[in-house]
């Protein structure tokens, strides 16, 4: 199948890639670009393990065609830390034991970052509502919700 040339900004870098028009963004990230931090849990938009930030919005990258990212700004889990410094969300997820197997963790961190970028002080209900697109089967969500609230507090204290 003829491949299409796409120019995008990915985790702050200008990135060009070739893809088949039928390939999802998730597939291109993982198979064409080697960014395997975004996970496939369902491939139909129900689990959120493939969450990325596309032009400021959280999307399931399995439900976006890669060709749609022409000229777009994309942030994946690989672009959340600043150099070797973990993002406060990443640090707090570790401190609060907010992950067990870790497969859903990239999606939760990406989705939570998008929330805190927009709304720095969400309450528990807001966090639960925002993260309802992301499935975790290990933790029962308790420590994830607490971690996001704690990260919000910490980021506020630093500002």
């Amino acid at each position: 199948m003829r491949r299409t040339h796409v120019s995008t900004r990915l985790n702050g870098d200008n990135v060009d890639f070739l893809c088949e028009p039928r390939q999802s963004l998730l597939e291109v990230l993982r198979d064409n670009l080697g960014l395997t931090g975004s996970k496939e849990g369902c491939n139909n938009g129900n689990c959120g393990a493939c969450s990325v930030i596309l032009n400021g919005r959280v999307v399931n990258s399995c439900c976006v065609l890669a060709v749609e990212t022409e000229g777009a700004e994309v942030t994946t889990i690989e672009g959340i830390a600043e150099g070797d410094r973990l993002h406060p969300l990443q640090q707090v997820f570790l401190e609060e034991a907010a992950l067990q197997c870790g497969i859903c963790t990239p999606g939760f961190i990406v989705a939570s970052k998008a929330l805190l970028d927009k709304e720095p002080h969400p309450d528990e209900a807001r966090v639960r509502h925002w993260l309802a697109n992301n499935l975790c089967r290990c933790t029962g969500y308790d420590k994830i919700v607490r971690a996001v609230l704690k990260a919000s507090d910490q980021m506020e204290a630093k500002v």
Partner: peptide, 17 residues
Amino acid sequence: IRPDGAEKVTGAARYAA
């Protein structure tokens, strides 16, 4: 903090797929 934690919050950990 778990020894395999940093890899799992940065997307570096390698799963089967």
